[in-house]
Amino acid sequence: MTTNDKTMDILNLQFIGAGNENQQMIFNLDDEEFGIDVLTVQEIVRFTKPVKVPRAPDCVFGVINFRGDIIPVLDLRQIFGLEPVKHDEFTVTIIVKASEKIFGMIVDKVSDIVNVPEPNIQRTEFSSKEKTKYLKAVGKLENRLILMLDLDKVVNFEEIEEALHPSASNSGSNEIPAQ
């Protein structure tokens, strides 16, 4: 546990020092490396089991108490259609802010903070059906491929739900019938 805490401290320190525009915080889901803009990261916290919210979208793991606020935590594995894994000492919750919303994302581990030079960033239009729709670019770093996440899309639950359960729509309007 203590080693984990130390790692957390170091990680937090690192990202406090970071400020460059293309700096990406790298986290892992399975063998893939994902990157998010360091400036969107609020804090990295030890994984705590979120409180389940009944009938919430599947991608919402639950809610946690983050400094007196109750914020949702997303299960990125679910969003990317990956099999669930057991949480271990490397599992962390990254608290991010996007689209004026603060939320957490559970990832397998946070591994690095890197600077991805602009020329190495490839911004292609990704297919809207695939899980790649949550990406905004791919960065190349020597032999590593970094999938750069578009957090604004990640936090757009309606679309996510739509993608996961295309049937679940048409949720009745709230208007009073015309008189």
Partner: peptide, 9 residues
């Protein structure tokens, strides 16, 4: 309020 990041429940 549950942080507005969560869709209305």
């Amino acid at each position: 309020q549950i942080n507005r990041a969560l869709p209305e429940n």
